[in-house]
Computed example of a mutant assay.
Amino acid sequence: MKHLVSFKNIQKTYDGFRPVVKDLNLDIKEGEFVTLLGPSGSGKTTSLMMLAGFETPTHGEIFLKDKPLHNLPPHKRDIGMVFQNYALFPHMTIEENLAFPLSVRKMNRIERAEKVRRALDMVRLNDFAKRYPAQMSGGQQQRVALARALVFEPKLVLMDEPLGALDKQLREHMQLEIKHLHKQLGLTVVYVTHDQSEALTMSDRVAVFNDGVIQQIDSPAAIYETPTKSFVAQFIGENNTLLGTVLSRDATHSSVRLKDGSIVQAITVTDAQPGESVALCIRPERVIVSAAGTTPLTARIREYIYLGDHVRMITEIAGQPDFMIKLPTAQMDSSWTVGSSISLSWAPEHIRALDVIQH
């Protein structure tokens, strides 16, 4: 499969001193759905805007189908774009909004009408052709914005927080709609969000950004289950961190002493050597709870929250007060109450020795 997009050694700075994007190298295959995920200011939107042509790299080159983009203005890049605020023309009807990118491309009227009809059909809005944006709901306007990005059949569509303004239920519905269109039309999508569940739901690959650098890029399952950095483990989903010191290590496992003297085996991911600090990361749903005294690791329940299908227990373990456990309600023992001691364990492959985040 060919690369449709390549970022090569891209740097971007606005003031000449502080880079917003640092040495970005990223290849995106044809037909892929890649999400750039990260907190505000991490460089994800700037990277998207450089690809769109609204920003210029300070250093490096971006290629589309092996052709450099630096001399091409945005409207000549043949890229569809969907924004959070829809960016529809309020004085034009829906069909006029959709026809606009086609008239810019000097398409004749008959062909234009046919493409607009197909695009409206795609997002199930045929009955709304004569309406104006102000006469439509937020979800409908976002579908129009999506149709407008697809109407000229671009090979590449960029989406910048496109569902940020919608309510939860509508957002989840639109996530599936975009995913289906991606598959159905064989589009290549580069999607920017700070919403982790959106990234996990929709993407073939997720690039997690922080401080202008991709921390990890992988499939959603790998990003969630096998993070390579503490930042990724903390940013994606819920995560527990236990701080400790490496006693010994080999290529696959580390033996780590926690603050209370307990010793835990973990998968070696960081390059920390014996005597150095590590952060042990484990997901709350991977923790196994049993009666007190059945394993060497004892925790005290500080709080528990009933959420219908599952319960969250906040516990204190190895001197750390906020270790969370997520259990199906059916596995709860009625004798576990605030103040109770319980024993904790987990499968060895679910705990990872990662870098310690420096504050």
Score class of each variant (00 low, 15 high):
L344R: 07
G43P: 06
A353P: 10
L146D: 00
M49P: 03
G53W: 00
N85G: 08
I282T: 03
A330L: 14
I178S: 06
E198W: 12
H194W: 03
V264E: 08
Q135A: 14
S290E: 09
T337C: 10
Q169L: 13
G43Y: 06
P90K: 14
L344V: 14
A347L: 07
L64C: 12
I314M: 04
K155L: 05
G43I: 04
S345A: 15
K2R: 15
E303P: 05
P73H: 03
R171F: 02
L36M: 12
T294G: 05
K155N: 12
I282S: 05
N240S: 08
R257H: 01
D27M: 08
H173L: 13
G237A: 07
A119D: 02
S137P: 10
K76Y: 04
R205S: 15
H359L: 08
A233T: 13
A87W: 02
L64K: 06
A87S: 04
D218I: 11
A318T: 08
D66Y: 08
S42N: 06
P101R: 00
P39C: 11
L170W: 01
Q140T: 01
A129N: 03
E111Y: 10
G16R: 11
Q142V: 00
K12A: 04
T268G: 07
G261N: 02
K22A: 12
A149S: 07
V278M: 02
E349T: 11
P90W: 06
H253C: 09
L4W: 11
K155M: 07
L37A: 07
D309R: 15
L146P: 05
I178N: 07
L243S: 10
V189H: 11
I28S: 10
M107A: 01
I223M: 08
L125A: 02
G339N: 09
E95V: 00
H3P: 08
N71F: 09
Q84F: 03
G38M: 03
Q234A: 13
L36K: 12
P284V: 05
R286L: 10
A266R: 06
V116L: 01
R286Q: 14
A199H: 05
S335M: 14
H91N: 12
F17S: 15
Y86V: 00
S203E: 09
I94W: 01
T188E: 06
M81P: 02
D78Y: 01
Q216A: 15
